[in-house]
């Protein structure tokens, strides 16, 4: 197309533009569908807006109310963090264990793979209904089965101590997606690497620690970040399964924001709540991301950074 002379020049120019061409779809989408609403909600947080009525500018009142006059804000924040602390490591661990299990070369593994994945296919609404149906302490089937075994089941949804356990059990049910992500990655590890290690005399555990884990660190990072976000924004289950109860023991931050917006019709206040959480999650993500350079190894960066050279 162009002469050899300015080919080099064009080339570097193109090289500079090319990456932006690739990410252009997202940039357009961000500007059209995300930026506007985001800015709008930030502005809204400075207003008192009862949805049905007129919005009134009130400066930073929403934020000061949130920090100084609303104990529910701190309660919900604390419960949510507690949930995330239980849920994130548990979910990661279970997902990883399951992913390893379904790579085992034994008969019928395909069936198990499908079974483990099955719950991830069910919508959040249905998940809450099914589990709510089973957890009921009066007529639920779980406590009935327990009673057949001679165990008196707890009041899952009435006892505040058990309610959060209930949420964890019901939400861990959908661990299949994460399992699948790990599985896809583990499946991608070349056999030769294991064979070589095996010749060197490394056992399965040693192989797991020195080959599997380092290779899948990028997906571990992905799963950590997305499950932190999911845990901190958990809404469907607490809205439909427990309604935030009993005694507000599962009144998660997501529900706090949702209720402020749609039950109390305080959209301005809800925006302030939401923005606070947005910033918390953003900081947390950046922190995890920063830390990742110490424990995540990308093949594409191996040469450049002389890190984690393994296998090759």
């Amino acid at each position: 197309m162009f002469t050899k002379k300015n080919k080099q020049k064009k080339f570097t120019l193109v090289r500079k533009r090319v990456p932006f061409l690739f990410i252009l779809p997202w940039i357009i989408g961000f500007i059209v569908f995300t930026l506007g609403p985001l800015v709008f909600s930030l502005i809204m947080s400075l207003f008192d807006w009862p949805i049905a009525g007129e919005a009134k500018f009130i400066g930073f009142d929403n934020f000061s109310t949130m920090f100084t006059a609303d104990p529910q804000f701190y309660d919900s924040l604390w419960i949510t963090l507690k949930f995330a602390l239980i849920f994130v490591p548990l979910n990661l661990l279970v997902a990883l264990v399951l992913a390893l299990l379904i790579t085992q070369p034994i008969k019928g593994i395909k069936v198990f793979r499908t079974i483990f994945y099955l719950p991830a296919v069910v919508s959040g609404v249905a998940v809450s209904i099914i589990w709510g149906w089973m957890f009921n302490s009066e007529y639920g089937v779980l406590n009935y089965i327990l009673s057949l075994l001679g165990i008196e089941g707890p009041n899952w949804l009435i006892d505040p101590k058990w309610a959060i356990v209930t949420i964890v059990i019901a939400s861990a049910w959908g661990v299949g997606s994460m399992m699948l992500i790990f599985y896809t990655d583990i499946k991608g590890i070349p056999h030769e690497m294991y064979e070589a290690a095996s010749i060197d005399g490394a056992g399965p555990i040693r192989q797991f620690i020195s080959i599997t884990i380092p290779t899948i660190t990028p997906t571990i990072l992905f799963n950590v970040i997305t499950s932190v976000i999911a845990a901190l924004q958990q809404l469907t289950l607490v809205l439909l399964l427990t309604g935030g109860g009993p005694l507000k023991s599962t009144y998660f931050y997501g529900l706090f924001v949702y209720n402020n917006a749609f039950k109390h019709h305080e959209l301005g206040y809800a925006s302030a709540n939401a923005w606070f959480m947005f910033i918390i999650i953003l900081l947390l993500t950046m922190l995890i991301f920063k830390s990742s350079s110490a424990w995540v190894f990308y093949e594409a960066e191996v040469k450049k950074e002389k890190k984690g050279g393994k296998g090759k």
Binding site: I158, P160, P246, L247
Partner: peptide, 12 residues
């Protein structure tokens, strides 16, 4: 609602 729950919930 919370107060009523406190009155009736067996754990409180």
């Amino acid at each position: 609602s919370l107060v009523f729950e406190e009155i009736f919930n067996p754990s409180t």
